[in-house]
Design a protein around this nucleic acid. Sequence first.
DNA 1: CTTTAGTATGCAATTTTGTTCAGCTAAACT
DNA 2: AGTTTAGCTGAACAAAATTGCATACTAAAG
Lengths: 320, 320
Amino acid sequence: MTIVENERASRFPDAELKARAAWHYYVEGLTQERISEILGVGRIKVHRILSAAREEGVVQFRIRDSVVECVVLEESLKQRFGLSQAVVVPSAADRSNAPLMIGHAAAAYLADHVNAGDVIALGWGRTLKFAINELPRRPIARTTVVSMLGGLTHAQPLNPTESAWDFAEKIGAECFLLPVPVYADRPEQRDAFMSQRSVQDVVFRARRANIAVLSVGSFSNDSPIANYGFIKPSELEELQAAGAVGDILCHFIDAEGRPVDHEVNRRVCAYPLQDLSDIPSIILVSGGSEKVAVMRAALANIKVSVLITDEDAAKGLLGR
Amino acid sequence: MTIVENERASRFPDAELKARAAWHYYVEGLTQERISEILGVGRIKVHRILSAAREEGVVQFRIRDSVVECVVLEESLKQRFGLSQAVVVPSAADRSNAPLMIGHAAAAYLADHVNAGDVIALGWGRTLKFAINELPRRPIARTTVVSMLGGLTHAQPLNPTESAWDFAEKIGAECFLLPVPVYADRPEQRDAFMSQRSVQDVVFRARRANIAVLSVGSFSNDSPIANYGFIKPSELEELQAAGAVGDILCHFIDAEGRPVDHEVNRRVCAYPLQDLSDIPSIILVSGGSEKVAVMRAALANIKVSVLITDEDAAKGLLGR
DNA sequence: CTTTAGTATGCAATTTTGTTCAGCTAAACT
DNA sequence: AGTTTAGCTGAACAAAATTGCATACTAAAG
């Protein structure tokens, strides 16, 4: 077996430089030129170091005041969907930035609400990736992260496996992964994969989780599930024809939140949807107006405790 | 009567605008001009709102400063485990880069601390491979490298034999290898192998080494010892059931650092653990949060002089 | 020892941000 | 009503940050 090397090394491995530069720039308010003198590196390099620092979450931005309108929406959402908590952030001006903003809020929420000993079952998605990226790196004792999804056969930057690893690393958790592809080629293979002892073991651990963190996917064309090519365009069309409004944990669901009857749903290697009820606290992290339909579906069929979303989606969900 | 001025009266009482602007600017990364369009105010006003938001602490910047901590950790480790030296590097942003970063530090350490005439007993692991890789190719007179482990039956990129050879080549050392497989098929074969004159000769040379460089392995699923397949998954489970937390020189040890009673440990062809006490300076090179348990075990039972590790592991080791 | 692919670096052009200042409005005062 | 004054606004300019591009490294391959 080959050892898979991860090539995605940081461009500036010197964490000291990043921390110093970020401190001077953001906290101290110095100009990049001045910092370049202090650190003795080129002015442009300082800029690139700062970019890297932001990228990697070495600097974090915390916005304290809540937006009044969002607070109102939060209350309505709690009421309407029986949530124990809701977080609504302002919508991104640019649609494609929604995951960034929601992820930021999710990171803040998780940083405050994950406790020692927690077992976290983890889904997959762009929003979750951003959330994990912005999580502060602070070990939390005896935590466990369990992936609820199989991996990708070709390594990709956005990958259930990678996400779980990163999350676990940030909080110093033990990490369990499903060592199977997220979609098997054929239903029988799925059954064979899922009956593996090692797989069953991980699913069992997920079932014992006290927190699940997951998001939903829509059919919009920048959705990773559509782009990575493990679902064929023709299948996507079939799924939509069968009434699917999007996916949760890579299961495609209809407007009522029930899995649609399609071969793709019989090929998915993931934690079973109906078993989500075994997990006491489910955190749904998703937003953007294009996800309203699938979020509504998910909320209809899954007992969500905490919803982290944006204004657009909140308004859409409450809309009718 | 004096009128008390509220000197901190905000120029922009509209907290809503401040919060929204801050989200768009810092989290979403929009330009001030773009924000001015969205919020329907002038560009300059956006700038002033953002200034006010910073001034008043509505936005806060947090920088994860790991470097300062590292020095503190080094001191604590020396104290706690009676080391003569400790090196702690910032943890890799990406979990899988931990060996790279620690290896880098180890290479720097070795380059400075290997002297003419030294005899180096060498273990095996991914971290060590990276260390050897980054060693400068500079001959050091009359040095000797002795492998403490047998070889792999099928040639692999990550291989005790190869590692020793590369190390020796880099510093122009004489190189001695154990001409036996790292795991014999059966205990009796191990005994037969190890009693070979040629093997005894190499073990004897290792015992006379003045430096040992080694790392530990954990049960995590990217561990080479798990992946190369010379230990069956069923055996790995048995070992864990028997209390093993990981391996050192391919001997599986329990939380107290003692070899567990299992057939696998009677099949290993390697330098005997208890004879490590004959080597005056032992350098342990390992890190990553998943290795904390086995590192603690190793430190409990082996007189380590120098520990080269990362922040995660250092914190974990000092944790309780 | 040379080649070469990949990476890092800094320059220059462009965009974005920060600052100053004069103009405007409207409430308060004469 | 006329004047004052404080506060806000945006134009114009100055400073800083960002990006594309060309060049100079570095390390692996020939």
